[in-house]
Simulated assay, not measured.
Amino acid sequence: MKMIISAIRRGGASGVRQVTLDGVAAGYPGRPVLSQLDAVIPAFATTAVVGPNGSGKSTLLGAVAGVISVTAGTVTHRTGARPAYVVQRSAVSDALPITVRDTVAMGRWGRRGLWRRASARDRSVVEGCLERLRIGPLADRRLAELSGGQRQRALVAQGLAQEADLLLLDEPVTGLDEAARRIIAEVLAEVTAQGVTVVQATHDLRAARRADHCLLLHEGRLLDSGPPAGVLIDEALERLWGLPARR
Rank of each mutant, 00 (worst) to 15 (best):
D122A: 10
A189D: 04
S124R: 15
S124P: 08
D140K: 15
V125L: 12
I184Y: 03
R151C: 04
L133H: 05
S147C: 07
L143S: 11
A189S: 14
I184S: 09
G159I: 05
W109G: 04
A164L: 09
D140R: 15
V191C: 10
R108A: 02
E171G: 11
W109D: 00
A185P: 02
C129D: 03
Q162V: 12
L188F: 01
G149L: 13
A154F: 02
D177M: 13
L143W: 06
R142D: 00
E131V: 12
E171F: 14
R132Y: 02
T174N: 11
L168V: 03
A118D: 02
L188Y: 01
R141L: 08
V126Q: 06
G175E: 02
L167N: 11
L166H: 14
A154E: 01
V125T: 14
R108Y: 00
G175C: 11
G136N: 07
L155F: 05
A185M: 04
G159A: 10
A189L: 09
V126G: 03
L176I: 11
V173R: 11
G148L: 04
G128N: 10
S119D: 03
L160W: 00
T174R: 15
G148W: 03
R153A: 03
A154Q: 02
P172D: 00
W115P: 03
I135M: 08
S124Y: 10
P137N: 10
V125R: 15
S147F: 07
R111Y: 07
R108L: 01
Q150P: 14
R182I: 04
V156K: 14
R141K: 07
R123C: 05
G175L: 11
L155E: 00
L166M: 12
L167S: 09
V187T: 12
A185R: 14
G107P: 13
L138T: 11
V187D: 01
E131W: 11
G128F: 01
L143C: 13
L166N: 11
A118M: 04
A179N: 07
E190Y: 07
G107F: 06
C129A: 14
V191Q: 04
L130Q: 10
E131I: 09
I183M: 03
A144G: 13
R121P: 01
R116Q: 06
S124I: 09
I183E: 00
P137Y: 08
I135A: 12
G175A: 12
E145L: 15
L176T: 11
Q150G: 13
L130D: 05
L169P: 01
R132I: 06
L168F: 04
D122H: 03
D122M: 05
E190Q: 13
D177I: 14
R116D: 01
A157D: 00
G136C: 11
W109T: 08
G110I: 08
S119F: 08
Q152P: 14
L146Q: 10
R182N: 02
R123M: 06
L176M: 10
G107N: 06
A185L: 04
W115L: 12
V191K: 13
E163H: 14
A189W: 03
I183A: 08
A179E: 02
R153H: 01
G128Y: 04
S147I: 05
E171L: 14
L160H: 00
L130K: 15
V191I: 09
V191W: 05
V191R: 13
R134E: 01
R182Y: 00
Q152C: 15
M106D: 02
